[in-house]
Simulated scan of single mutants.
Amino acid sequence: MAFHTRSNSFPSRPHPIVQEVDEHLCRLRSSEVTSTSSSISHKLTGLQELHSCVDRLLQLPLAQQALAQEQNEKSTNELLDGSLRILDGCSSAKDALLQTKECVQDLQSIMRRRRGSESGALTTEVRKYLTSRKMVKKAIHKAMRNLKGSSFSSLNNDNETIAFVSTLRDVEAVTLSVFESLLSFISGPKSKPSGSWSLVSKFIHPKRVACEEETEANVFAQVDAALQSFIKTSKSDHKNADNQLDNLESCIQDQEEQLECLFRQLIKTRVSLLNILNH
């Protein structure tokens, strides 16, 4: 009697977790381009859900088998380097937020102690804050250059291995893109042209309109602008600056908490990947 067995070479239906990863990737790719506090928060939440899902994917025997069969040492190193680059991006964002928060709190403390005094007494402290912001921005720009990954090597393996490696590469690309958005948000949009050229440029370069809207929605940029105005106008009433600093501190607190949860998840995912590739 002849027995017919199903060939393992035929592609099976995608595992539900694989589909879930794809859905998270699609949502993050389609998220709004203009960065606001709420959109950044939404993206960070999406990243945490994505990497939690990736970690569950790496626990599947079929994923472990597929990745363990990857014989291309360059491709394997790329995956490990990519996961490390992701951790570095998260650490850079955490450092930028921490440095800015410390400067905000120092300035708030000084402004409260000197409330009602002449604005000239605060000008030096405000200048110190703006100088520290320049240092943070410089560190951010360096971190953003480091986020740029190298081109991936070609894959020469079975279809299942190629599929899993490609998925992890997509996860890396989307994650780094979100961190780039976050770092850009912390740094603040580039200063826009002033005067009549600004009006003309809106018609020539429509994208600049979106950039200006982003400036208005960026609490980091708002504080920078409020403090620069404080120095230029020398107004004794610094209520506006106080309010802007309070809003910024609240925004930083929320983003710090999200990044801390995400960082722990990223470490967990990297450990899972190391256990498979170094087995």
Results as ranks from 00 to 15, higher is better:
Ala2Tyr: 12
Ser7Cys: 03
Ser7Asp: 04
Pro11Gln: 13
Ser12Thr: 02
Pro16Tyr: 00
Pro16Met: 01
Ile17Ser: 00
Val18Tyr: 00
Gln19Met: 00
Glu23Ala: 00
His24Gln: 15
Leu28Trp: 13
Leu44Cys: 05
Leu44Gln: 07
Gly46Glu: 07
Leu47Met: 06
Glu49Cys: 03
Glu49Asn: 06
Leu57Arg: 01
Leu57Met: 08
Ala63Pro: 00
Ala63Ile: 01
Gln64Arg: 15
Leu67Phe: 03
Leu67Tyr: 01
Asp81Trp: 09
Asp81Gln: 11
Leu84Ile: 04
Arg85Thr: 13
Leu87His: 10
Cys90Thr: 14
Ala93Thr: 05
Leu97His: 13
Cys103Trp: 09
Gln105Ala: 07
Ser117Gly: 04
Ala121Met: 14
Ala121Pro: 05
Thr123Phe: 06
Leu130Lys: 05
Ser132Gln: 10
Met135Arg: 13
Ala143Tyr: 09
Met144Gly: 05
Met144His: 09
Lys148Val: 15
Gly149Gln: 14
Ser151Gly: 07
Leu155Phe: 11
Leu155Met: 13
Asp158Trp: 05
Glu160Ile: 00
Thr161Ser: 15
Ser166Pro: 03
Leu168Cys: 02
Leu168Met: 05
Glu172Phe: 06
Ser177Gly: 03
Glu180Met: 01
Ser184Ala: 10
Gly188Asp: 11
Lys190His: 00
Ser191Met: 12
Pro193Val: 04
Ser194Ala: 15
His205Val: 05
Ala210His: 14
Glu212Phe: 06
Glu214Tyr: 03
Glu216Trp: 05
Ala221Ile: 06
Leu227Asn: 10
Leu227Ser: 08
Ser229Glu: 11
Asp242Cys: 11
Gln244Met: 15
Asp246Gly: 08
Asn247Gly: 11
Gln253Asn: 10
Gln253His: 10
Glu260Tyr: 09
Phe263Glu: 04
Arg270Gly: 07
Leu277Arg: 14
Asn278Thr: 15
